[in-house]
C-alpha cells in the first residue's frame, strides 16, 4: 500500500478534505467517500459516460481520473445542478419529454448536457447527438434525450432573453 495523500476538493460548493491512496479513482471518492451517488459506474474504461461530472469547467469521466489528479479542483455533480424546489431546466425537460427510463445514465447525461449547452447554447439536433456521444443510454434510443435537450435549450434561451 502506498502512502496516503491529503486531498482537497470543492464538490457542489462544499469543501472536502481527506486522506486517500493515490489509486483512489474520483468516482469512488464521490460515491463511497462523499456519498454522492448520482454519478454511476457503467463501463470503467471511459466509454459510457455514466460517471460524468464537471471538473473546473470541463466534462470529465470520473472513472478515468484519480482523486489525486483532481486535488484542488471544483467539481459539480448532478447533485449540484438543481434543487428539488428549483430544478435545472434540463432536469425539468428530461422529465417532461421522457428523456430517461431506468435512470442509470441520467445523472451523467444531464451533467454533460449542462456543459454542452454552455459550449453551444443553441445546438442543432446533429450537434446535440455529436456533443452527447460520450454518454451511452441503453433504454431510450436517444430520441427523447435529444428532444429534452432541445427543449431545455429553448427554455434557457427564452429565460435569458426575458432577463435581458
Amino acid at each position: 500500500m502506498s502512502k496516503k495523500m491529503h486531498i482537497k476538493l470543492n464538490v457542489n460548493g462544499k469543501d472536502e478534505e481527506f486522506l486517500a491512496e493515490p489509486r483512489e479513482l474520483l468516482i469512488y471518492t464521490l460515491r463511497e467517500r462523499l456519498n454522492i451517488t448520482g454519478p454511476h459506474i457503467g463501463c470503467e474504461t471511459s466509454h459510457c459516460g455514466a460517471c460524468t461530472v464537471t471538473i473546473n469547467g470541463k466534462s470529465v469521466k470520473s472513472c478515468t481520473m484519480f482523486a489525486a489528479q483532481a486535488d484542488g479542483a471544483e467539481i459539480t455533480t448532478i447533485e449540484g445542478i438543481g434543487t428539488p424546489d428549483a430544478l435545472h431546466p434540463l432536469q425539468e425537460a428530461f422529465k417532461e419529454h421522457h428523456g430517461l427510463q431506468c435512470g442509470y445514465c441520467t445523472p451523467g447525461m444531464i451533467t454533460r448536457a449542462t456543459k454542452l449547452l454552455e459550449e453551444n447554447p443553441n445546438p442543432t439536433e446533429e450537434e446535440i447527438r455529436f456533443g452527447m456521444a460520450g454518454n451511452i443510454c441503453r433504454c431510450t434510443g436517444y430520441q427523447n434525450i435529444v428532444k429534452s435537450i432541445q427543449a431545455a435549450a429553448a427554455e434557457m434561451n427564452a429565460a435569458k432573453e426575458a432577463a435581458e
Binding site: 448520482g38 448532478i78 445523472p107
Partner: peptide, 21 residues
C-alpha cells in the same frame, strides 16, 4: 402521464444496489 420516477432519477437520487452502504 409524466413519469413519477423521474424526479429522483433526474436529481441523482436513484437508489441502485451499488449505492447501498
Amino acid at each position: 402521464r409524466k413519469r413519477v420516477e423521474d424526479a429522483r432519477f433526474t436529481q441523482g437520487k436513484g437508489n441502485y444496489v451499488d449505492d447501498i452502504k
